[in-house]
Structures are given as C-alpha cells and as structure tokens.
C-alpha cells in the first residue's frame, strides 16, 4: 500500500502528454459539478485516459480541484490500483490470493519473472509487458489464475506460460 513511488519529472518532459487527454479530463471534472469527495473517482478516470498518473496529471488535477498537490499524491501513492509509471502494452497479473497461493501461484510469478527478465511492477525492455502481482480477484474456483489485460487464464500451470507470453508477443509486433 505504502510503497514509495518516485516521481520522475524529467521523463515526463521527454514525451509530452497529449493535450486532448487533458481536455477530456477537464471536461469530466467540469461535468461532475460538485467535486467534494470525488478525488478517487477523478483519479480513476485520469488513469483510464492516460494509462497512468504522471506528475503533470497529478498537478493538473490538484489545480482543477483547488487542493494541494501533496494531497493528490498522498491518495495516488496510498492505493495500489493507481500507478505513476507507464504500463506495458499488456499487463500480466498473477493472482496472489490464498487459494491461488496454495496451488502454486508463487512459483508461477517466479517463472514469469525469469522468462520476462523483470521484477513485478516492472515493464519489459520492449515495452510489451508489465508484470503485476495482484490481490485476490475472487475467482478462487479457477486457481491459480493469470490475467492478461482482461482475459482470465484459469488453472494455469508452469508449462502454459510460454504460450501465454507468445500469444501476446506476436500480437504486439
């Protein structure tokens, strides 16, 4: 929860964020009317638009709502759903709920780390995959579960991993 996430200002400047994204977000905030208590909802929307919540987006929201940027960052860094780092084209989520754990999900995420050569919450060199360990997604009957974007792979075994990676690698090219 309280994982510190460094804000990389320099990186943001390298690739300017599209203006129209900011317009869309601004429209969402204006349409909302009363923004009291709506910060989390706005952040959900912003992450949906931008894919992640870089420093500039956080500052933008803070200005629009008239609240300190520290408050926005405080909320962003508190909740694991929000990320300040860009994501890969595909997100591989390995469920780390108990039911999956006792059926070997810890081994599965280790194999993914080896195969993709990254740690969890990191992005592969080619920008194709982000690996995540996620909390129980509540489909314990199908454990162990791997989710790629929104597609659920039930009862995954170590032999299946290459296939999963292959499916999404070729698609990305």
């Amino acid at each position: 929860m309280t994982k510190p996430q460094a804000i990389k200002a320099a990186e943001d400047r390298d690739q300017p964020l599209p203006e129209e994204y900011f317009d869309e977000l601004e429209k969402f905030i204006i349409d909302m009317g009363d923004t009291q208590g709506a910060l989390i909802e706005i952040l959900h929307k912003a992450q949906c638009i931008f894919g992640y919540l870089p420093r500039d987006v956080q500052l933008f929201i803070a200005r629009k709502l008239g609240i300190p940027a520290a408050e926005v960052f405080g909320v962003v860094s508190f909740y694991s759903y929000f990320t300040t780092e860009p994501r890969g084209r595909h997100t591989i989520s390995v469920c780390m709920g108990t039911a999956c754990f006792v059926r070997g999900s810890d081994q599965i995420i280790e194999r993914f780390k080896e195969k993709l050569n990254i740690e969890s919450n990191q992005i592969t060199e080619d920008g194709n995959f982000t690996l995540k360990d996620v909390r129980c997604i509540g489909a314990c009957g199908l454990s162990p579960i791997v989710m790629v974007d929104n597609k659920v792979y039930p009862r995954v075994e170590e032999e299946n991993l290459d296939n999963i990676i292959k499916t999404y690698s070729s698609e990305g090219l």
Partner: peptide
C-alpha cells in the same frame, strides 16, 4: 456507487 482503488484496509 463509490469505487475503491485497491486497499485492503
């Protein structure tokens, strides 16, 4: 409806 954002607490 209000949405959570991934915090067990």
């Amino acid at each position: 409806i209000k949405y959570g954002a991934g915090a067990f607490v």
